[in-house]
Amino acid sequence: MTPSLLYAFAGVALCSIGLFGFVRIRHLLRKLMAFNLIGSGVFLLMVGLAQRGGQPDPVPQALVLTGIVVAIAATALAVVLIRRYYHLSGQTTLAEPRAKRAKPPAPTANREGSPE
């Protein structure tokens, strides 16, 4: 049991927790955090697994750095979208609004008739 393997196991554990959260949680922000948790798990696993004869391998470090940048970009985009979505619909989950459908088409529903 080397320390690097320990990192890898920790990574797997983080991934599983994150995945559980990602599937179960409906609140969008918390879902996003679950995603970040999976991401951290994968990065940890990547750094942990790639050890050549006890020497840390520089390549995965570089890759993980790139990966983190990508994850941040994705998170930022998601936050913007979720925020805007909340402003427009007042919802924090992706559930289709049922009540709206029951109502007869209000003037706003005229979108059906406009070019998209």
């Binding site: 890898a8 991934c15 994968v42 696993l45 990547m46 697994l49 790639a50 390549v59 995965p60």
Partner: peptide, 8 residues
Amino acid sequence: LGVALIYG
């Protein structure tokens, strides 16, 4: 994750 395993 698959890539990490392959690289490992």
